[in-house]
Simulated assay, not measured.
Amino acid sequence: MDWLLAARMQANCLARPVNEAGPGGVADVVRRTGGLQAQTWRGASYAVRARSTSTTISDVSWAQETDRSVVRGWFMRGTLQLVAAEDAGPLLGLLGPKLIKDSERRYGELGLTERIRAEAADVLEDWLLTHGPTGRTELADVLVRAGLIAEPKGQAVYALLRHTGLLGRLCYGPGHDRGETWVAVRDWLGKPLVLEGDLESLARRYLTAYGPATARDFATWSGLPVPAARGAIEAVATTSFEVEATALHAVEDLPGCRDVRLLGEFDAYLLGYQNRYQELPTSIFPGGGMLRPAVISAGRAIGTWRHADLSVELFEPADLTGELQDLARFGGG
């Protein structure tokens, strides 16, 4: 199994193949991986660092806020991702309709009918086109004034923002955490998204960044139905391996990466599969949708660490000197 984890680590760019600095390096990482988890801005930023040698945390902000070569929004599985700007439309064309359908029950629980959602998308986009980047509190007030929600609190506000994002009409703009804002996509990127994507192209990109993997892994990563995922994977795979009586597909046979790497929270490498072929301890994967920063070696989790003080808890010995020094470089320390 060691060869499989090392191969997956290399496929997911954790051998740090990107040497370009600046926003170009950030965009290159995001393209190569097919997108990075971005539930937290910090997690997405450290995912870029783990896959490149010259980018900085300010480069990640520049790439999204100024260069706009990457977009933060709701894509694979309906979760927050950082994707290349040119991939946003194709991804939403492939994934958006199913993600909206999968959310129908939650919309019903929140009283968000199809009419309310459609009107909210128009209201939010019109406001953002007129007023530019706007935070959640102000957008909630806009929805209340439009008579679409009763109060500017609760989960309905976020659900309507996300729904409008899945339609390709808004995305995250400047600011992070408490200061985050949303923008109208056609203003932010200079044109509306074309919501058309090719499933086989997406499957090929997935295997390039995550292979060897199964169709169920691809379905888990993307949010697509398993039958559609299986057909696409089988159409594009060029080589296969059998692991524990399961066929894993790939587009190339990789020698593998055996480096040590410090990953941020919600790293795509640990979220890209149905079967990771390793058990994550509760210190990394405590449940409840959380995935904490991890230390990996040759693709296998060997410890956890903390952003606040760079303290590390290792399950087995490893030399972290280079990684800790690079964390300081990335953050400007």
Rank of each mutant, 00 (worst) to 15 (best):
L4G: 03
R8F: 06
A11W: 03
N12A: 14
R16N: 03
A21I: 07
G25M: 03
V30D: 02
V30P: 01
G43S: 04
A44L: 11
Y46K: 05
A47L: 11
T55I: 04
D59R: 02
W62S: 12
T66F: 00
T79Y: 01
V83C: 05
G89E: 11
G89H: 07
P90K: 00
G96C: 02
G96P: 00
I100C: 02
E104R: 15
G111R: 11
L112D: 06
E114K: 15
A120D: 03
D122N: 11
V123W: 10
E138N: 08
A140H: 02
A146I: 10
G147D: 04
Q155S: 12
V157S: 08
Y158C: 05
L161Q: 02
L161V: 01
H163K: 06
C171T: 14
Y172S: 13
G173M: 09
R178N: 08
E180T: 15
A184V: 12
A184L: 07
L193H: 00
E196F: 04
D198V: 14
S201D: 12
T214P: 13
D217R: 08
A219M: 06
T220H: 14
W221E: 10
P225Q: 11
P225I: 06
P227Q: 02
T239H: 11
V243I: 12
H249R: 13
A250G: 12
V251D: 03
L254F: 02
G256H: 09
C257R: 02
R258N: 07
Y269G: 00
Q274K: 12
N275R: 12
Y277V: 09
I284Y: 00
F285G: 01
G288N: 13
L291Q: 10
A301G: 07
G303Y: 01
T304V: 01
W305D: 04
D309F: 09
S311Q: 05
P317Q: 07
L320V: 01
G322R: 04
E323L: 09
Q325H: 12
Q325F: 15
D326R: 13
F330H: 08
F330R: 10
